[in-house]
Simulated assay, not measured.
Amino acid sequence: MVTITLVQGDITRQRADAIVNAANSSLLGGGGVDGAIHRRGGPEILAECRALRASHYGKGLPAGRAVATAAGNLDADHVIHTVGPVWSASEDRSEVLASCYREALRVADELGARTVAVPAISTGVYRWPMEDAARIAVETVRQTRTAVQEVRFVAFDEGAYRAFAAYIG
Rank of each mutant, 00 (worst) to 15 (best):
I4N: 01
G9P: 12
D10N: 14
R13Y: 07
R15C: 09
D17C: 01
I19A: 11
N21I: 02
N21D: 03
A22V: 10
S25E: 05
L27E: 01
G29V: 05
D34F: 00
D34T: 00
A36W: 00
A36Q: 03
R40E: 13
R40D: 11
G41L: 11
G42Y: 10
G42K: 09
P43M: 09
E44M: 12
E44I: 09
L46A: 13
A47N: 07
C49Q: 02
L52G: 06
A54P: 06
R65L: 14
A68T: 06
A71M: 09
L74T: 07
H78R: 15
H78T: 06
H81L: 08
T82H: 08
V83Q: 04
G84C: 13
S88Y: 11
A89L: 13
A89W: 14
E91R: 14
E91S: 13
E91A: 14
E95M: 13
C100L: 07
C100H: 05
Y101W: 10
R102E: 13
R102V: 12
E103C: 01
A104F: 05
L105V: 07
R106E: 03
V107C: 02
V107N: 00
D109W: 07
D109Q: 03
D109M: 04
G112I: 08
G112S: 08
T115I: 08
T115D: 05
V118H: 02
G124H: 05
Y126I: 00
R127N: 12
M130F: 01
E131W: 04
E131G: 13
A133T: 09
A133I: 08
R135K: 15
I136P: 04
A137D: 01
V141N: 01
R142Y: 02
V148M: 08
Q149D: 13
Q149K: 14
V151N: 01
R152C: 14
V154I: 14
D157V: 14
E158Y: 09
E158A: 15
A160T: 09
Y161V: 04
A163I: 08
F164M: 00
F164W: 00
A165F: 05
A166P: 02
Y167W: 15
I168D: 00
G169E: 15
G169I: 10
G169W: 08
